[in-house]
Design a protein around this nucleic acid. Structure first.
Length: 414
DNA sequence: CCTCCACCGGAACGTGAGGAGT
DNA sequence: ACTCCTCACGTTCCGGTGGAGG
């Protein structure tokens, strides 16, 4: 017993671990240098510069797909700005970073901003999680900011999710924030909006767009060469010498990520997983085979994670699609899906949702990438969504089987 | 060319949980 | 105890529609 572990532990003892600093591959890591993003950094830097002289910078909109370095550049420039202010003994601007997709609602965004001011200049006030009208919290924020008599730079990451959530309201907060400068006596606010949806602008209230979009910074996807450069940079920090000796490894990771529209985050994640895989197997170096294997692992894990965290009703809908697919149906229509769903809901003693609702759930599953849907017309026989599983049937099957309630039902049906 | 199916998807509204202030 | 918030999740209602078949 323990033989394989012996080998593994020996590696650690001999100091031959694969990683030197695996955190350098995590998405939150901000490296000393950001290659291929000088242009964007300079733009943002020169726009924010006036903050050092207590003049309000213009608002900025950053565009670019996921993993193109928007967030990291914004945070990096902000940290440099604050550092510079300290060094030069000028009042350093207030900064806040909010990820709107995670923070979610107008109320909570404002609350986060209040907290961030509170952290810098405590006045003992606390904003409750909920309960106050949004107007109220907005005026609290305004007051807090004005008292600080400072410039505040707010990064709103993934702003598009705010606007998409509900059209009127999402604009509300942006409108409120962009207009706030006129209402402030002592302070000014400047917003950096980050969006990975290029169509985001069209959904925006024109009044908001005119102020928020004063400056625009575009982040193009990294091409294969650039990805390779980034990977090389991180490999040197994250891995021990010789652990990634094979240049083919970096090329492969870069190529696989380039297929995913040059997403650097994916690339780094893939690299880390590959390394961890090699480490776990007690290998000295990372090979291309590790990379291929890691790719599969990542894919499998994200799918099973999304399915597991689905609400029960959505699981039931997904199960209905799965059951139909298992019967050899290639294209599934909303109506059929709903019928099966109804039986399923009955068997699971769930509430039976309306078809309207189920239709929305289907769209959500589509957005999660678990199924593919297209709206088609069958002429005389109506208009409907054509649904297909986007993942292998086997995989969905095993995951759904693991669910205690669904697993039992599955036995009855098949 | 028109009709009409079987849904789509927007909008307004309802409910109940979680919480604040008075 | 009561009123007032937000917010997730659903429902009800309804106008809209691409194209097979008459």
């Amino acid at each position: 017993m323990g033989k394989p572990l012996d080998k593994l532990f020996d590696k650690f003892l001999q100091g031959q671990a694969i990683f030197r600093d695996r955190d350098a591959l995590r998405p939150t890591y901000v490296p000393e240098e950001l290659p291929y993003r000088d242009e964007q950094m300079n733009r943002i830097g020169s726009i924010l510069g006036p903050a050092l002289r207590n003049a309000p910078p213009s608002n900025i909109l950053c565009y670019g797909k996921t993993g193109t370095g928007k967030t990291v550049v914004a945070r990096y420039v902000l940290s440099l700005l604050v550092r510079k202010a300290h060094q030069s003994n000028v009042q350093s601007p207030l900064t806040a970073y909010v990820n709107c997709r995670i923070v979610g609602t107008n109320y909570r965004v404002l609350r986060k901003l209040c907290e961030d001011i509170e952290a810098r200049m405590p006045d003992g006030s606390e904003v409750p999680f909920t309960g106050l009208p949004t107007d109220e919290i907005r005026s609290i924020f305004k007051k807090k900011l004005d008292v600080s008599s400072n410039i505040m730079v707010v990064v709103l990451d993934e702003v598009d999710s705010l606007v998409k959530r509900d059209v009127g309201q999402g604009n509300d907060i942006l409108y409120g924030l962009t207009r706030m400068n006129g209402e402030l006596e002592q302070s000014k606010i400047s917003i950096i909006g980050i969006s990975n949806d290029l169509k985001f602008k069209e959904m925006l209230d024109p009044r908001v767009l005119s102020t928020l979009g004063e400056e625009e910074v575009i982040f193009a996807p990294y091409n294969a060469v650039e990805l390779k450069g980034i990977l090389q940079q991180r490999v040197n920090i994250a891995f021990n010498d010789k652990a990634v000796a094979d240049e083919g490894v970096i090329n492969l990771v870069g190529a696989l990520a380039a297929q995913e529209h040059g997403d650097a985050r994916r690339a780094l994640d893939l690299l880390r997983t590959s390394g961890e895989l090699a480490e776990r197997r007690g290998d000295d170096i990372v090979t291309q085979e590790h990379v291929r294997e890691a790719q599969k692992i990542i894919e499998r894990d994200t799918i099973s994670e999304t399915v597991k965290t689905l609400p029960m009703q959505s699981k039931a809908v997904l199960f209905a699609v799965y059951a139909l697919a298992n019967k050899g149906k290639k294209d599934i229509f909303t109506g059929e899906c709903y019928n099966v769903y109804q039986d399923l809901a009955q068997a699971l003693s769930l509430d039976k949702l309306t078809q309207r609702r189920v239709s929305d759930l289907i769209s959500e599953l589509d957005m999660l990438g678990l199924i593919n849907t297209t709206v088609i017309s069958k002429g005389r026989y109506g208009r409907t969504k054509k649904i297909r599983l986007a993942v292998s049937r086997k995989q969905i099957g095993t995951i759904l089987d693991e669910d205690i309630r669904l697993g039992r039902i599955a036995e009855e049906i098949f």
